[in-house]
């Protein structure tokens, strides 16, 4: 009887642990959503202080521009190289322009930008906010009757959301330039064909606007995760470390998962 009882008890323990973990997860999810509402409620106050937004745009957006441009250039170059080898077999290398542009505008621009953003700006935001919490700066602000969500979080959130589409556009632009450089400059595709085909095949609403909408959604999700992880971090060195790691991991999953959903909605028949 005894081994059976031990076995049942071990099973119950495991069940209990799973239940507790699930509850903790849902609690966090709930806190995250309430936090987003709080941040949105702080928006009117932020708009009255444009200086704050500009400062954060500089930190979150402008400081990420270089890595975005360099990555975009590289991705565009690789895309042109791989595309050329596939297309040339069918004698269809004049489609290289639209292939590069569509790949960048629809998918690679928004997605890779969001992933890079999580690594560069998102982790930075989470660490900054987490450290402000650890060093009691947020508590100090609260005791000075200043709402830290309004004063610290909301401007950073808005800056992140505004930066993402701009960064994604820069990524795609750099990618097209990289594609042109490889396709026309190195592989000998006709320059006029490259541009004219691109103009003919890329649709303003279907491709460009949809791509921008995607990156706007990613901007909301990536910045939301980053500021929430920082604000919700345990106020210890370890807690801040975990918050930055989680920011990058959760953002990556969320962006890739959402990308599938958005693509299915936007580009399906």
């Amino acid at each position: 009887m005894r081994p059976l009882r031990d076995f049942v008890n071990a099973g119950l323990d495991r069940l209990q642990r799973m239940g507790r973990a699930a509850l903790a997860m849902f609690q966090r999810l709930g806190r995250g959503h309430l936090f987003l509402l709080q941040v949105l409620a702080g928006m009117p106050a932020v708009l009255r202080r444009p200086g704050q937004i500009v400062a954060q745009l500089r930190f979150v957006g402008a400081h990420s521009a270089l890595i975005i441009l360099v990555s975009g250039l590289n991705v565009g170059m690789v895309l042109a190289l791989q595309g050329y080898y596939s297309l040339v077999d069918f004698g269809a290398e004049e489609s290289l322009g639209p292939m590069v542009a569509l790949g960048l505008l629809r998918e690679l621009g928004p997605v890779v930008t969001a992933l890079l953003f999580a690594g560069r700006a998102g982790s930075g935001l989470a660490a900054e906010i987490g450290l402000m919490k650890t060093t009691e700066q947020l508590a100090g602000m609260e005791m000075m009757a200043v709402d830290p969500v309004e004063r610290v979080i909301a401007p950073r959130f808005l800056a992140g959301v505004l930066s993402m589409p701009l960064l994604a556009a820069m990524f795609s632009l750099a990618g097209v330039v990289g594609g042109y450089f490889v396709g026309v400059g190195l592989l000998g595709v006709d320059g006029g064909v490259f541009w004219s085909q691109m103009q003919a095949k890329v649709d303003f609403h279907g491709d460009l606007v949809n791509g921008l909408v995607k990156s706007l959604v990613f901007g909301v999700v990536a910045t939301w995760i980053a500021v929430f992880e920082g604000y919700d971090a345990a106020p210890t060195t370890e807690g801040v470390g975990r918050a930055t790691t989680r920011t990058v991991v959760h953002t990556s999953f969320a962006v890739l998962g959402l990308d599938f959903v958005l693509t299915a909605l936007m580009f399906g028949e």
Partner: peptide, 12 residues
């Protein structure tokens, strides 16, 4: 709170 000051241990 505007009429209460608080000095944190770390200075904050």
């Amino acid at each position: 709170r505007r009429r209460m000051g608080m000095l944190f241990q770390t200075g904050a």
